[in-house]
Design a protein around this nucleic acid. Structure first.
Lengths: 334, 334
DNA sequence: ACTCGCGATGTTAACGCTAACAGCCGTGCG
DNA sequence: CGCACGGCTGTTAGCGTTAACATCGCGAGT
């Protein structure tokens, strides 16, 4: 910066002013400085800037297994929204989730000087970790649970599951079976809850849900079990598309026709879902919107224009009807 | 830090020494300092540290659409390897790839003070951008092309495609058709090349390849076309699993049996592949290894123990045989 | 003509840390 | 007994930037 100043014949402070678009710089001076910057190929040192301004313009993201479609999409949405706001992203992708691990990750990010963190915290343990944040660190939880003083953005899992279940009932199915995600995932809990609520409201029997771990393999196992009870099972709501894929495969092997004998609904709308055999009816989540909203909430804490309270924003999901759902065989028999 | 020093009754420099595991600190002093740190909940400011040491311990990653399985897995592998080495990761995920965009991203990361960058550069344009790196910035290209003075780590796409094609020929197929990825992707080019080479070596006819864009939709379109020529088509090598899914769907709709009439091989081994109907034979890439190797190469540049040259490391892929491949119908007729 | 105000620029002092050097004390050796 | 040396700690000076205040010149208002 000193070199630029010397070449332009001004003080380093004037160079700084040009760099920061300070209004009170003469047009001609500005041009001279810009020219000098260009000639020398100067790039400012944002580390030094961060030290004095106490703003790194970097946000931290803590996530879990960014190989999975949901987390990957969420992180991508967050990343895009962050850059649109003129910030950068530092990421920590955890291999296992536990309270201590999440806390440690947040601590490292805080040490690194991020201005705030987004915790993509779909598990109960991660959500709890937000209780003991470093003091004064702005934070937003994505898919976390509301409670305490943390802002939260989440897709309305309960509503999505309710829609899926109600849709199946609307097709004439007597009841709907459920393959759930792991117990410690909040999303699994929300989807189970919505499914149960829809059945309750309609006054239908609530079958014992099966539990998987989001993988196709676990869906396959559940499918094997349900295929053996095809007399009573006419509709299944599966908590994500990957498990639904496994279930479709198990059904196909067992000769159970979808949707003729059993209707299946998934959750997520992964890019592959429309090309499953049959094309999967599922519930789409708008991850881009989740990213935008969470960054919006975070920046509101970082750059508070007005006093803010902690909010809980909810993004509505959308049912995408395809070919894996149909009128129940039992309904047709009547 | 001053507060900690005061509480522990030492100078700030001694606190710094404790933090940096300097050997010449008395055990008792160290304990006193650590206690003071604990009491005050002090966290060091890595920004200030970076300013003076000229090392941020942060690496930059430039990638394209981290929603896709390949890039997402690569970035995940890089992230894990980076953390294992005691570094942090700043990420820039580009929505579109062009030389200027990649350069700009690298420039931003350099300004942010990263110690080096990994460019996940599967497109030709991205690979070219590495030609004009900011001077002195350590860099590694993943899936890029060797050339110029940049270290590269890549999966041997040519070999993977060769294996897949040779496997099909070994099953008795007269030739193998190909659904390729987009022209501007180096991976697509490599896979096309390997397929072509395997056919050449065996002295077989080389059909005109179809071109897709990695999406299931484009694979579906290719499948529709190939299903119409089922008399001549008995084996297809598809450049990725998602397109293979679309192709399987098109075949299923057209009543073409896989593998009885046509054998299909994909590429990537996405988690869903084993649960396609039929389970997809495919080529697995070890993304974790790619991540580890690229970080290794990068750190060798950042912390040079000995003079280093730019290397090109190649990770071997692995064919995973499943149920979508079988002896050719034509072979059975003989 | 003299001040006042404001636009444009310069000067100085941090930001929180580490490197480099300085100093002090006790031990061992000539 | 003096001195060198090494272990341990303290002091000082930056790293590259921005904030805050100082300065200077010029046009407007009285």
């Amino acid at each position: 910066m000193a070199d630029v100043a010397k070449l332009a014949g001004v003080s380093h402070q004037t160079v700084s002013r040009v760099l920061n678009d300070h209004p009170k710089v003469r047009e001609e001076t500005r041009a001279r400085v810009l020219h000098a910057i260009d000639v020398l190929g100067y790039r400012r040192n944002l580390t030094a800037r961060a030290l004095v301004t106490r703003r790194s313009h970097r946000l931290g993201v803590v996530s879990f297994d960014t190989t999975l479609y949901g987390p990957a999409s969420t992180v991508y949405g967050i990343e895009q929204a962050t850059r649109a706001a003129g910030y950068f992203v530092s990421i920590m992708s955890l291999r296992t989730i536990d309270r201590a691990g999440v806390n440690e990750a947040i601590g490292h990010l805080a040490e690194q000087g991020v201005d705030g963190v987004v915790v993509v915290a779909p598990q109960r343990a991660a959500a709890q970790a937000l209780a003991d944040l470093p003091a004064g660190l702005p934070a937003v939880a994505v898919e976390g649970r509301h409670g305490g003083d943390v802002s939260v953005v989440s897709v309305d899992q309960v509503e999505g599951a309710r829609q899926a279940t109600a849709y199946l009932l609307g097709l004439g199915h007597e009841t709907v079976w459920h393959v759930s995600g792991p117990d410690d995932w909040l999303e699994a809990e929300g989807r189970r809850e919505g499914w149960r609520a829809a059945l309750s409201v309609a006054g239908r029997a609530i079958p014992e849900p099966l539990t998987g771990d989001w993988t196709p393999r676990s869906g396959y196992r559940a499918g094997k079990i349900l295929a053996g009870r095809v007399a009573e099972v006419t509709a299944v709501f599966v908590a994500n598309d990957q498990m639904a894929l496994g279930l479709l495969r198990a059904f196909s092997e067992a000769g159970v026709k979808v949707p003729e004998q059993v209707s299946v609904v998934g959750f997520d709308d992964i890019p592959e879902a429309a090309y499953f055999t049959p094309a999967l009816t599922t519930v789409r989540q708008d991850f881009g919107e989740v990213g935008r909203l969470s960054i919006g909430l975070l920046l509101k804490q970082i750059e508070p224009a007005e006093p803010f309270g902690h909010e809980h924003l909810i993004v509505p999901p959308q049912l995408i009807a395809r070919d894996s759902t149909d009128r129940a065989r039992t309904a047709l028999l009547h």
